[in-house]
Nucleic acid binder design. Structure first.
Length: 290
DNA sequence: AAACAGGAACCAC
DNA sequence: GTGGTTCCTGTT
């Protein structure tokens, strides 16, 4: 991999196992929007546009410096993980082989723990379209405006701004009963009672327990936060889709979520979270079990 | 228009 | 600690 600066864009040469639709539309991130020139998002209070040239194997990051790339985006896009090897390892199992072939360009992003915490509290009992809408409204209302190419974008709200939010404003953003959970959680973080950044440093089991101290975070949401923002590749979030696909292909009948997690841990090992990501995309696109 | 989709809180037991 | 019910909003 070699990163080269062209004007205000970084071109990363030699990136493999990358396909934008798989990366940005597999349910892990909610702020990336597809446009003519690529996918655009606000991440870490910066607007970024990403596009990938499959033929030349170049990842183009617009509005990005070389320092930004090495200091942030390289890790954000998980570019130092050998997905070729991961996919090879997972493909010894015929079901995973099929799922991996289908979502071949998926990568698990390393996102911000605070943003991921709130985003997945919103995700509970909710669907992706609605989650995206709620996060957009919250950002427009409580985030900071950033203008790029003549367009307005909004950063993800800070803990302080959400802790101070009116109940009615959260309701208008479509949070529903989750507004209370968001405020409670934001308040805990703003007061420094629990830090998502400190939780990130803990091993899986402890982090899984700690993150559930936030209101609105249960077993599944905890696993999402650990996998998508705390570098825990063994975390295996079981939502209805993953439950269905696991029962359909591996078990044959309905079982409790706890059992699905332990079967997955045995079957997929330390990459269970990456396996989950391929399975989720496969199950949802193919409507397995529906 | 009633039914459904989607995880965690909360209260019984 | 387990099981059943309720929470909110958008879609069918």
């Amino acid at each position: 991999m070699e990163a080269v600066l062209y004007g205000k864009a970084v071109h990363v040469h030699g990136v493999t196992d990358f396909f934008s639709d798989h990366v940005f539309d597999c349910g892990q991130a909610f702020r990336w929007k597809q446009g003519e020139k690529g996918y655009t998002a606000v991440v870490d209070s910066k607007v970024i546009r990403a596009s990938y040239d499959t033929e030349k194997q170049i990842l183009v990051l617009e509005n990005c410096s070389l320092d930004d790339y090495h200091g942030f985006w390289r890790n954000y896009f998980d570019l130092d993980r050998d997905y070729g090897q991961v996919k090879k390892d997972l493909s010894s199992d015929p079901v995973m082989k099929e799922a991996v072939a289908y979502g071949w360009g998926m990568r698990v992003l390393n996102q911000d723990p605070w943003e991921t915490l709130i985003s997945f509290i919103i995700s509970a009992n909710n669907n992706i379209t609605r989650i995206k809408g709620i996060i957009d409204k919250l950002s427009a209302r409580f985030g900071k405006e950033i203008v790029w190419e003549g367009k307005s974008y909004y950063s993800f709200p800070t803990p302080e701004s959400l802790a101070a939010a009116d109940d009615s404003a959260l309701k208008e953003c479509g949070c529903g009963y989750r507004g209370r959970y968001i405020k409670n959680t934001a308040d805990m973080v703003a007061r420094g009672l629990v830090s998502p950044y400190e939780i990130r440093e803990l091993p899986y089991e402890e982090a899984h327990k700690e993150v559930q101290k936030f209101t609105g975070v249960g077993d599944k949401v905890a696993d999402c936060i650990l996998l998508y923002s705390m570098g825990k590749a063994e975390a295996f979030p079981v939502d209805v889709w993953v439950k269905r696909v696991m029962e359909y292909f591996y078990i044959g009948h309905p079982v409790p979520i706890k059992e699905i997690k332990s079967i997955a841990a045995k079957q997929f090992g330390r990459y269970a979270g990456l396996a989950q990501q391929y399975l989720f995309y496969y199950a949802r696109e193919k409507k397995i079990g529906k």
